[in-house]
Every structure is written in structure tokens, then in C-alpha cells.
């Protein structure tokens, strides 16, 4: 279990992170979201002891993270770094050895990982000869191959296409099922929403949202409706309680004043019987993210 309490860090006059607090249980995934410069990387560095907090504590299994815990950590830094002139195998074996895994164990496991992430290349290929996406995958393998218990992934999805992003999601879920505590940051709210048990949104170092994705979304009420019905645009715009109407293909996306408007809208839309689509939901995380950013500016 990772417990972060009252974590604060300032860089001169600049705010790094202010009074941050969260807990990640074993087998739990936490998504950290926020704009660039919100304090995500700073948070990761303080968890890893790479940066000393001004105040607050980070506890792993009840004690501060020490050298003895390094072997249980898997860390993917935001800026990727590999020895470009080394072969895939040498590279992964070295990083795993630094985490205390015997080279023989790594060599045995590596082909499976290469297959799982669908890395295009032989074990003896030099890193510099790989495409950027494949380099990224090798780095992910190097982060996860020693079966870490505390996994910290800084923007793991950036640069991956949807297929590879899915492969990564699957691996993260598997690590979670093996009991790892996982924290990751992402700009892609869809990934975050799909795999996170817990979400933390930072803005200029301050925690603006915290909770499960559902909790956070429901704070904003069921005020979004997606509708395909005989009602046309003019009728929707004129409908009482509807704030905004956006056409998406042959469906409309509406923003309501409050949840209750949805009932009246459903009645009106179904007055002639069957309609193919009516869904009333809270705003998406993407939208919440934008709302929160706008609110604080």
C-alpha cells in the first residue's frame, strides 16, 4: 500500500505540489490527471525519493521508501531513455538486473514479453534501429519485466496507437490482478476512465478532484443527453431547460440545466413511440477536465 500524506513541494516561488494526499491499495490503479506542469511528474519523483518534499510523507507498506524497496519498483519516466547502441536483450537484462532480477530469469521471460507487446524486432537488434513505438514498448517491458509491486508510469500511453494502447492496458490490468499498486498519469481520459480505480486531478499542484471515476462524474450530475429521435434541432433548442445543442452525425448532444429536464425530454422524444437512442449521463472526464481547467482560470 502506498500512502501519500500532506505532500508539499515548492520550487522557489513556483508551486510544485500543494498538500497532496492519496492512498493506493495493493491491486489498485490510480490515474493522475492534470495539465502540463500540474505537478504529476513532481509527485512521481517525490514518491521515488528522487526529490525531497518540503513537507509531508510518502509511505510504502508503512515505511518510507528505501534502497531495500528499489527492487519492487517499476518506473517509466516521462522522457524515455534507453541506451541506443545496446541490443534489446542487453538493455532489458541490465535494467532488470538493476532491480535485482537475475539475467537468466530476464532472458527466459523476455521473448514472452516481446510477443505480448508485439515488438517488431529480434532480441539482438539495437535500440537505435527500432521505431519509436517499438522503443517505447521495450521501455515498458524493462519497467515491468521484474514483476514490480509499486508501478509508476509517467504518460505510458503517449505515442502508442490504439492497438498498442490496448495491449498496455491489458498488461496494467494484469499487474493489478497480481497485487501491484499502480499509479500512472495520462492525457487520454478514455484510458484513465477505463482502468483507474481511483482518480486524482491536479491543477497547479493543487488537488481539484479525487475519487473513483464514477464518483467524480456523478458530482457533475446527469446533465448530458445523447439523443436520436424525431425532434429536430429547432425543437431541441426551444425545449425548456436545454442549454446547448450540438449535432453529431444524426444524433444530438445536449447539455441540460439539471437532471430533471431529462424526464420531460424523454417524454417529448418518445411521444410517437420507439426512438433508437436516448442516453443521459454525467459529463465525460474529458469535459470535466476542461470544465475544471476553465473554472480555475
Amino acid at each position: 500500500m502506498l500512502t501519500v500524506a500532506n505532500l508539499t513541494k515548492r520550487f522557489g516561488p513556483k508551486q510544485g505540489v500543494e498538500d497532496e494526499a492519496f492512498t493506493i491499495q495493493q491491486g489498485e490503479i490510480m490515474g493522475l490527471i492534470g495539465q502540463n506542469g500540474a505537478g504529476k511528474t513532481t509527485t512521481f519523483r517525490m514518491i521515488l525519493n528522487l526529490l525531497q518534499p518540503d513537507s509531508g510523507t510518502v509511505l510504502w507498506q508503512g515505511h518510507p521508501l528505501t534502497k531495500a524497496d528499489y527492487n519492487t519498483v517499476g518506473f517509466l519516466p516521462e522522457e524515455r531513455g534507453l541506451y541506443t547502441r545496446m541490443s534489446i536483450q542487453d538493455q532489458v537484462v541490465y535494467f532488470a538486473a538493476l532491480r535485482g532480477q537475475q539475467p537468466a530469469v530476464t532472458r527466459k521471460a523476455l521473448p514472452q514479453w516481446m510477443a505480448r507487446f508485439n515488438v517488431k524486432g529480434k532480441l539482438t537488434d539495437k535500440i537505435k534501429d527500432l521505431s519509436k513505438g517499438n522503443q517505447q514498448k521495450v521501455q515498458l517491458i524493462a519497467t515491468l519485466i521484474h514483476q514490480p509491486k509499486l508501478i509508476i508510469l509517467d504518460e505510458p500511453f503517449s505515442g502508442l496507437d490504439p492497438v498498442n494502447a490496448q495491449l498496455l492496458e491489458d498488461s496494467i490490468i494484469e499487474m493489478k490482478q497480481n497485487g501491484a499498486s499502480i499509479i500512472f498519469s495520462s492525457h487520454d481520459m478514455a484510458n484513465v476512465e477505463r482502468i483507474s480505480d481511483h482518480l486524482l486531478m491536479l491543477r497547479n499542484g493543487e488537488t481539484v478532484l479525487s475519487g473513483t471515476p464514477d464518483e467524480i462524474r456523478s458530482q457533475f450530475g446527469n446533465t448530458r443527453v445523447r439523443l436520436r429521435s424525431p425532434l429536430d434541432r429547432a425543437a431541441l433548442v426551444a425545449f425548456p431547460g436545454v442549454n446547448d445543442v450540438q449535432q453529431r452525425g444524426n444524433a444530438y448532444e445536449l447539455t441540460l440545466d439539471n437532471e430533471a429536464v431529462g424526464h420531460d425530454l424523454f417524454k417529448a422524444a418518445t411521444s410517437q413511440g420507439y426512438i433508437p437512442e436516448f442516453s443521459q449521463e454525467p459529463p465525460s472526464l474529458d469535459e470535466i477536465f476542461r470544465i475544471e481547467v476553465a473554472n480555475h482560470e
Binding site: 519523483r45 528522487l50 518506473f75 531513455g81 538493476l98
Partner: peptide, 17 residues
Amino acid sequence: ATEKGSHIMEILVSSVS
């Protein structure tokens, strides 16, 4: 300098003192 410049250092420092 290469390790530092390519941010490999972050992995190294979080693995070995």
C-alpha cells in the same frame, strides 16, 4: 552525460543509489 541527457538516469537512480 548521455545517461543524464537521455533521462536513463531517472531509472538508474530509482534502482541504485
